Simulated scan of single mutants.
Amino acid sequence: MTPIVMLDQLVERLKSIVSNFELPSNVEGVKKAPQVLAGYLPEKRQNQDQPDLPYVIARFLGDNETDEQATATVKIIVGTYSKDQKDGWRDTLNVLTRIKQELLARPVFGGSFLVARPIKTELPEEHPYPEWWGTITLDVIIPQMEEEGGF
């Protein structure tokens, strides 16, 4: 199993977790569930009528293979939109918390991948208002490569 397969399976899991949210978007009057993507957001275009916020991005950071197990480090980035300068951060934290709770309650996804503890959640102090963002960083135990042949 490759990290790409793992990310694609994680995206499917994240879609099911956030599908019931109805959050403000960066298009006036439009509320929607976050779009969920692997890697990066597509390039923004001027006069865009499709909102790019809110979003959830699953990003591969690296992997580690030992004799005991193989793990991949993933960062889940959540972005929301709110013009409320006092409480705009709440939607981001709510989405992050729901994702974390669901991954801890059911840590196996895609049949072969296991979310490992610890899970780290961060909500930075600075935000590009009216956009708000936060992250979850976690390790996923992935199937280990088997050595073929001998010397």
Rank of each mutant, 00 (worst) to 15 (best):
E131A: 14
Q46A: 15
E126S: 11
Q85I: 09
E22L: 15
G149C: 06
E28F: 05
L7D: 03
A70W: 02
V78E: 03
D8A: 09
I76F: 03
P143C: 04
R59Q: 12
N47G: 11
N20F: 10
G134W: 02
L96T: 04
A70H: 07
W132M: 13
T137P: 00
F109E: 05
G150A: 12
P124F: 08
G29H: 09
V115F: 00
A58G: 11
D139E: 11
K86E: 15
V78D: 03
T137C: 00
Q69H: 09
K15E: 11
I76Q: 02
G39C: 07
M6D: 03
N47K: 11
E102S: 07
I76A: 03
Q9K: 12
K44L: 14
P34G: 07
G62W: 01
W89M: 02
A116W: 01
K15V: 05
I141R: 12
G39N: 06
A33F: 05
K120Y: 01
P143M: 06
E126I: 15
T137H: 00
L96K: 04
V95S: 05
D8F: 07
T80G: 11
E22R: 15
G111H: 08
I77S: 08
D87C: 02
L93Q: 14
N94V: 01
Q69A: 12
R13N: 02
E131Q: 14
F21M: 13
Y129N: 10
Q9V: 02
S112Y: 08
Y55D: 08
K32P: 08
T73F: 00
I57K: 02
K100G: 00
P130G: 07
V11R: 14
D49W: 03
V30Y: 03
K83L: 10
Q48R: 06
E43I: 11
Y129L: 15
I142R: 06
W133L: 08
E102M: 04
W132V: 13
V74L: 05
